[in-house]
Design a protein around this nucleic acid. Structure first.
Length: 594
RNA sequence: GGGGCAGUAGCUCAAUUGGUUAGAGUCCCGGACUGUCGAUCCGGAGGUUGCGGGUUCGAGUCCCGUCUGCCUCGCCA
């Protein structure tokens, strides 16, 4: 070892010891007579002092020191003189009196410094990730990530789960996201697909009798990115045999309990609360509601039907919905202009036709440009429905149910953050259950599996497969943390008759199903145990437990919104020879339409 | 594919209504200084205003196109 201690290790009790430290120069303060260096590694910072007693040669060497140089110093630990203790540093009581120094590696003047107070632009950070990752915040986050993964692995090992690796090179399956494809050199014209999840493999493992499987699995989906979405991401994937939904949920409840305790030192009350999908949509407009605050959606379609106001009345008469939210005490915080912006927001992003709003005045008068279209009596009913008080702001959307959900969910989320209706550090865990089996794809005029085509329906809904597929609920469950989907799973179909019916609904012919995943259908006929599982989004867990608002900050080497790696410059072009081996030809843009 | 925001010195930002030689802090280089910890003080260097067109007597500023990054809808569990 080149060092005897780390830079976060030494305390007053080490005074007098001769030590060797290595690290990066975090900062230096040159006083001519003496030079102070904060030496940094991932464990902390220690002040090292060059003074005349270090000797002329060492002092001379010290003058060359610049930030981010990698140096090794040997010296004795001493208490800092009275009045110069730095209470901000754990090592702040002591300093190293340098006897010799070696500059292990000079640092070129970097484009930015890892811990500089004004964070550089993200593209610069990503292009120079080695500097960015050197910073305290990123190091903290990656340590947190490592702890979370270890905690998960330990937990599942303790519960007799077996860690099994599944292939990265698989085959493309229909449904779900767009695949990342890898061309085969041996079989020209064919492609592997990178796994969107190890779903099918883990079901095979169940059939093979490994009744508790777990894996920290890299997954790939070639879809557009978001603040909480990367094209390659990591799941804690697990599957269990001879279980029902409650067993899976109970298992994950236990993991949440331990995580909250280990990471935040918080006690979580189990079982975690549950809400059905239908209830979540009704009360919050979304299947992953942030339950750290209220501001629930309120239906007033019946009142709208009584109104003269044509916009409301026609929507109500057409069987659509008029729903709204109330922001307590927010009337004065939202000017006409801000409300106009909100209107534009729900129109452009969610297809709402408009945003109706009322400010509650003193004396309970509702004021709004549209107020004149309502009788005083009806306005009073609205106020009562929303439980309004003077100073409140009521926002309403009149539209199809789905549009009211989306628009009001987005407004609720926005207002909740802006009005600080919750403590951002607070954590809320809950389950959403009873998802629909299918949603309707209007473009393709057919049903889609909401989760995946092997999801089992609720036993009481099985007959609806024939009569009312849209009402058929799945044994599916999502773990929601702070309004973010942190995991999701299902109990799988292990009955080939039901499986066939589901394929039929999805418009998949028997031959096609056999061709695409015959291996699973076959396996299901050779002694498949009832089974189910879940996958947790590890990147999101880190994000949520770390209080971060960006998934890129939870990943050592993330991609940009255009799925590029700015450091390695991936994706890149390849040699003609490589293409030839694969029998591939790159089309020009104008050929694409052919 | 659609909508929005941003791009000015190595970095973070400023630049009035379109008007003189594009500024500040920091970093970098040189100098001073024996207790600093965002050290301080003095001096210096550093610019294709993302790129390409256009309007204008004159463009960092206005218009068109384009590239990159971010947020978002669609997409995605």
């Amino acid at each position: 070892m080149l060092r005897t201690h780390t830079c976060g290790q030494l305390r007053a009790e080490n005074v007098g010891e001769k030590v060797t430290l290595c690290g990066w120069v975090d900062s230096y303060r040159d006083h001519g007579g003496g030079l102070f260096v904060d030496l940094r590694d991932r464990y902390g910072k220690t002040q090292v002092v060059f003074s005349p007693e270090s000797g002329a040669e060492v002092q001379g060497q010290s003058r060359a020191i610049r930030n981010e140089d990698v140096i090794k110093v040997i010296g004795r630990i001493d208490l800092r003189p009275e009045g110069t203790v730095n209470s901000k540093l754990p090592t702040g009581e002591i300093e190293i009196r340098v006897e010799s120094i070696e500059i292990l590696n000079k640092c070129k003047t970097p484009p930015f410094f890892p811990n500089q107070q004004d964070q550089p632009n993200e593209d610069l950070r990503l292009a120079n990730r080695f500097l960015d990752l050197r910073g305290n915040k990123m190091q903290e986050t990656l340590v947190l990530r490592s702890r979370i993964i270890k905690l998960m692995r330990d937990y599942f090992e303790k519960h007799d789960f077996i860690d099994v690796e599944t292939p990265i090179l698989g085959r493309s399956t229909p449904e779900g996201a767009r695949d990342y494809l890898v061309p085969s050199r041996v079989h020209h014209g064919t492609f592997y697909a990178l796994p969107q999840s190890p779903q099918l493999y883990k079901q095979i493992m169940m059939i093979a009798g490994y009744d508790r499987y777990v894996q920290v699995a890299r997954c790939f989906r070639d879809e557009d990115l978001r603040a909480d979405r990367q094209p390659e991401f990591t799941q804690l994937d697990m599957e269990m045999s001879f279980v029902e939904m409650d067993d899976i949920i109970g298992m994950i409840d236990g993991l949440v309990e331990i995580s909250a305790k280990e990471i935040h030192g918080q006690e979580v009350k189990l079982p975690l609360p549950r809400m059905t999908y239908a209830e979540a949509l009704e009360r919050f407009g979304h299947d992953a509601p942030d339950l750290r605050f209220g501001m629930e959606l309120i239906d007033c379609t019946d009142l709208a039907a009584e109104a003269e106001f044509r916009v409301f009345k026609s929507v109500a008469d057409a069987g659509n919905k008029v729903r709204g939210i109330i922001a307590k005490g927010a009337a004065s915080k939202y000017s006409r202009r801000l409300i106009d912006n909100m209107t534009k927001f729900v129109q452009e992003d969610f297809g709402a036709k408009g945003l109706a709003w009322f400010k509650v005045e003193e004396g309970m008068k509702l004021s709004s440009p549209i107020a004149k279209n309502f009788s005083d009596e009806l306005l009073a009913k609205f106020a009562e429905r929303f439980d309004a008080e003077p100073g409140d702001l009521i926002l309403m959307v009149a539209d199809k149910y789905e549009v009211t959900c989306k628009a009001l969910y987005a407004l609720r989320k926005k207002l909740g953050a802006e009005l600080e209706l919750y403590d951002p550090k607070e954590m809320h865990y809950s389950w959403i259950t009873e998802f629909p089996m299918f949603d309707y794809d209007e473009d393709e005029d057919r049903w889609n599996a909401m989760h995946h085509p092997f999801t089992a329906p609720l036993p009481e809904d099985i007959e609806k497969l024939d009569t009312a597929p849209h009402e058929c609920r799945a044994i599916a469950y999502d773990l929601v943390i702070n309004g973010s989907e942190a995991g999701g799973g299902t109990i799988r179909i292990h009955d080939s008759e039901v499986q066939e019916k589901v394929f039929g609904l999805l418009g998949m012919e028997k031959e096609e199903a056999q061709e695409k995943f015959g291996f699973l259908l076959d396996a299901l006929q050779y002694g498949a145990p009832p089974h189910g599982g879940i996958a947790l989004g590890i990147d999101r867990w880190v994000m949520l437990f770390g209080g971060l608002d960006n998934i890129r900050d939870c990943i050592a080497f993330p991609k940009t919104q255009k799925a590029a790696d700015l450091m390695t410059k991936a994706p890149g072009s390849v040699d003609r020879k490589q293409l030839e081996e694969l029998a591939l030809k790159v089309m020009r843009l104008d050929e694409k339409r052919v």
